[in-house]
Simulated scan of single mutants.
Amino acid sequence: MSGAAVSMFGGAASETLVCASDKLAARLDELQFDLGEGPRWEARHTRLPVLVPDVRDAHPYSWPVFSKAILETEAAALFVFPLTVGALDLGVVELHHTKPGSLSEADRATASVLAAQTAWHLLRRVLLVNSPDTDPAVETALLSRREIHQATGMVLAQSGTSVADALLLMRAHAFANALSLRETADAVLQGSLNFAPQNDRDGNRGLQ
């Protein structure tokens, strides 16, 4: 593999990039988070590995926006393994390679074992977040998207939608304006972006 990233779902640190081996691994995770589609979401929903040996041929999956966006990166293959412990869905491990190619049965088995070990390690770390002995670096990583979640709450209040729809609104705005979701969240928190209906704003004109 050329690189790897670990993301966590659920709990106080929902949809958080815990660690990445390099900038490309972090970028691939961020792209999927911003766009709301891609193999990480497929692995989360199915609880099964999602193997894409050639990103130019993502069949049988349908990720129209992400499939186009990933072609602008150096990644040529993606292999995503869910992180599960019993009934708990903790997150995903995202592996990428800069050359296309499939995993052998032995490589897939090894990756599955390592994913299981990572899931237990992540669970132990999560349980320590509120402990007095928590490593500050771990806590910072787990809460790295706190601002996005705060902004989602503000958009929920402004628009009167659900949490999922509030996040979808921010993702749509980010995509339409060539921004990252983090930049969009910052604009919401700073008050320069408002998703309330126009007639609910005191003198504000349209969506900023």
Rank of each mutant, 00 (worst) to 15 (best):
S2Q: 12
S2I: 02
G3Y: 00
G3Q: 00
A4N: 10
A4E: 15
A5K: 01
V6R: 10
V6T: 06
G11Q: 10
A12G: 14
E15Q: 12
E15S: 11
E15N: 14
L17P: 03
C19K: 09
C19F: 13
C19M: 14
S21P: 07
K23N: 11
K23M: 06
L24K: 02
L24E: 03
A25R: 00
L28A: 01
D29V: 02
L31N: 00
D34C: 04
D34H: 03
P39N: 04
R40W: 04
R40C: 11
W41L: 09
W41C: 04
E42R: 04
E42C: 02
A43E: 05
H45Y: 13
H45I: 02
R47F: 09
V50A: 03
P53Q: 07
V55M: 05
D57C: 10
P60I: 00
P60S: 01
Y61G: 00
S62L: 14
P64M: 09
V65F: 06
F66D: 00
F66V: 03
S67K: 14
K68D: 14
I70L: 08
L71G: 15
T73C: 12
T73I: 04
T73H: 12
A75I: 00
A76V: 02
F81S: 05
P82V: 02
T84L: 09
V85K: 10
D89V: 03
V92K: 07
H97Y: 09
H97A: 11
T98R: 15
P100R: 09
G101E: 14
S102G: 10
L103M: 12
L103E: 13
E105S: 13
E105A: 13
R108P: 01
R108N: 09
A109E: 13
A111D: 13
V113F: 14
L114T: 07
Q117G: 10
H121Y: 08
L123P: 03
R124C: 06
R124E: 13
R125A: 06
R125M: 12
V126K: 07
L127S: 07
D133L: 13
T134L: 06
T134H: 08
E139G: 09
E139P: 03
T140E: 05
S144F: 08
R146D: 15
R146C: 07
Q150T: 03
M154I: 06
M154F: 10
L156C: 10
L156R: 15
Q158F: 07
Q158Y: 09
S159H: 11
S159N: 11
S162C: 06
A164E: 14
A166H: 05
L168G: 14
L169Q: 08
R171I: 02
A174F: 01
F175R: 08
F175Q: 12
A176F: 01
L179T: 02
R182K: 11
R182C: 05
T184Y: 00
T184Q: 00
A185S: 05
A185V: 01
Q190E: 14
Q190C: 08
L193I: 03
N194H: 09
N194S: 07
A196N: 11
N199W: 14
G203T: 05
G203W: 14
N204T: 03
N204C: 03
G206N: 13
G206D: 13
L207A: 08
